[in-house]
């Protein structure tokens, strides 16, 4: 019996582990909280209406980030516009059409590979292919196409997951009524994957907002104020790239922190909407 006394050593082990776990979780959380507070304290005083609505000018020595905001909106809009049909189409093909296991395997492996490639490589290939080979020059359009490739796996995966939750009986029911394959997909399958598409969009918007390395050499870093059509064809930087340029190249930390604060708010909003969407879709599915 003596052997089995609850030893001091055992107690020490348990206490140490408990403490380490606590400390790690605390470190993780406090890092995030510190970053949020720090960015807000440094950034908020610099955010003004002039900054948000103006454009930078060396002549008048003023800065403004309206062009950057607009560029971001354009690029998000255009990227989603192009990536949605591609991603959803690929997901539909994988779950509804593909019978050959090898083809499925190859496509899924390709998607996995894409999601592991660093954004700097996307930027490089985007520059070579879109800007030079397809002669798009350094433009938002080239940037958007690069982002399309980057976000393809995200949309593909979320759509595929939600398609898997569409009950087989729905499809069988529709086929039983004599509907053709395309009609079944259009009326039964596609409506069933709306939640996956929306989740994918939210995630993609987050990724596009945060992206910088892939855009640096494809979309460029001009600050000109443009409408959407001329904008897409000309060089322009998004908020994130603008932050980099202001902080690293120009040393204007005030503007950089103002942009950082705006990006933080957007990140918070995106995370919130992702959480809400998940909650909403989960409830709808269980009803």
């Amino acid at each position: 019996m003596q052997n089995y006394k609850f030893t001091k050593k055992r107690n020490m082990y348990i206490m140490t582990m408990r403490l380490l776990m606590w400390a790690s979780a605390a470190v993780t959380c406090s890092l995030v909280i510190f970053m949020i507070i720090y960015v807000f304290i440094k950034g908020m005083p610099n955010i003004s209406w002039e900054l948000l609505s103006g454009e930078p000018s060396y002549l008048e020595e003023k800065t403004g980030i309206l062009p950057d905001i607009l560029n971001t909106v354009y690029i998000v809009f255009f990227t989603l516009l192009a990536v949605l049909p591609l991603g959803v189409g690929a997901a539909v093909y994988l779950t509804e059409y593909a019978k050959n296991k090898k083809v499925v395997g190859v496509i899924e492996y390709a998607a996995e590979t894409l999601s592991g490639i660093p954004s700097i490589i996307y930027g490089l290939v985007g520059m070579l292919f879109f800007c030079q080979f397809l002669n798009m020059k350094t433009s938002l359009l080239a940037g958007a196409f690069t982002l399309v490739i980057m976000n393809l796996p995200t949309i593909l995966r979320t759509t595929q997951e939600s398609l898997k939750t569409v009950p087989q009986s729905y499809r069988e029911g529709a086929f039983g009524l004599g509907a053709g394959k395309w009609r079944v997909i259009r009326t039964v399958v596609l409506p069933g994957c709306v939640d996956g598409v929306i989740t994918g969009c939210i995630l993609s918007v987050g990724r596009i907002l945060g992206e910088s390395a892939a855009l640096l050499f494809t979309a460029g870093f001009a600050h000109a104020l443009n409408g959407i059509f001329e904008g897409m064809w000309s060089s322009g930087c998004t908020l994130t790239v603008a932050l980099y340029v202001y902080a690293k190249e120009q040393g204007e930390f005030g503007v950089a922190f103002a942009i950082a604060a705006i990006l933080m708010v957007l990140t918070l909003l995106i995370n919130l909407s992702a959480a809400l969407a998940e909650k909403y879709f989960k409830r709808r599915r269980t009803v």
């Binding site: 993780t28 995030v32 990006l263 995106i270």
Partner: peptide, 17 residues
């Protein structure tokens, strides 16, 4: 929630801080 927020923070913000 905090961890997924950390995942969403753009890398340039990490760089800036």
């Amino acid at each position: 929630a905090v961890v997924s927020l950390l995942a969403g923070i753009p890398s340039v913000v990490f760089g800036l801080v």
